[in-house]
């Protein structure tokens, strides 16, 4: 169960995608997300699938691993699709009581499903190929203009990187506590909804306590190393935007143009 959650996990590597500047990668991911919602026909989705597949292949992250990120969202995707299927007005093909199946509904439901799937694939590829540290660095640089307007960018970035950093740790902790309670006869998998919710108490109480303890320890460790906010802090690794980043930008731009022209064609 816990092993299915892959979002926010880094897959170490040294591919072209891994070496791209984090800020550029963030911007390109945002562009990718916008493109997903711009697409108006199935040719566009074909092109999108090809582009996504190509990026995954050059990122050297196994396709199986990227696809696993969709699994926890499966019910959400199905639910959205069903809602769209019956709630969209248009030419009625089939009717049963208040349930109306329309031609527009079908195509809209399929569009929605594809959008969510590609949304997850694109964003998980970003976190797979960018280490949490690089990612926050990217976010921080991206937010610099807002910093001048009084936004505590460094603090925000630090909070995010800590949150990302602790996802695997907390998952591990959850797994350990679950096992410890299972060793004492706890049952997390059977019974009705109320029984299952109650069964979570022996898991959640220790988990919260350990999360607070970890937070406390981390705060002390940071203070011990004289941590203070962002002003005048220098970096160990200054990242520079190089040719690969420019190539990636041009490539994504071409992709966006292709999508727009395909949209007109359809």
């Amino acid at each position: 169960m816990l092993k299915d959650i892959t979002l926010g996990q880094y897959f170490p590597g040294n591919s072209f995608i891994h070496r791209l500047d984090a800020m550029i990668k963030l911007i390109l991911s945002a562009v990718y997300l916008v493109i997903i919602f711009l697409i108006k026909n199935f040719y566009g989705y074909g092109l999108l699938a090809a582009f996504t597949l190509f990026t995954i292949i050059i990122s050297t992250v196994p396709l199986k691993f990227v696809l696993k990120g969709i699994k926890p969202l499966l019910w959400f995707i199905i639910f959205t699709a069903i809602l769209n299927l019956f709630m969209t007005g248009g030419t009625v093909i089939w009717q049963f009581g208040f349930l109306k199946l329309t031609k527009e509904g079908i195509s809209f439901a399929v569009f929605m499903m594809l959008r969510i799937v590609f949304l997850v694939l694109g964003t998980s590829l970003l976190t797979y190929t960018t280490s949490p540290i690089a990612l926050t660095d990217g976010i921080e640089r991206l937010l610099t203009p807002f910093g001048k307007m009084g936004l505590p960018t460094h603090e925000l970035a630090m909070m995010m990187s800590i949150a990302l950093r602790f996802i695997p740790t907390l998952l591990e902790e959850t797994d350990k506590i679950m096992k410890a309670q299972m060793a004492r006869g706890a049952d997390f998998q059977s019974g009705n909804l109320i029984k299952r919710a109650k069964a979570l108490i022996p898991l959640l109480v220790p988990l919260f306590i350990s999360a607070f303890r970890r937070a406390d320890e981390l705060a002390i460790a940071m203070e011990c190393r004289c941590y203070r906010g962002g002003k005048n802090r220098t970096r160990l690794n200054e990242s520079k935007i190089g040719y690969p980043d420019i190539i990636a930008c041009v490539f994504v731009l071409l992709f966006a143009l292709a999508i727009i022209s395909v949209n007109k064609a359809g």
Partner: peptide, 20 residues
């Protein structure tokens, strides 16, 4: 497995972390 788990009591590392 429930029977197995009552036959073999397993005390984890830092077992006090499981108190709730």
């Amino acid at each position: 497995l429930k029977k197995v788990r009552t036959k073999v009591g397993l005390v984890f590392q830092y077992p006090e972390h499981q108190l709730f």
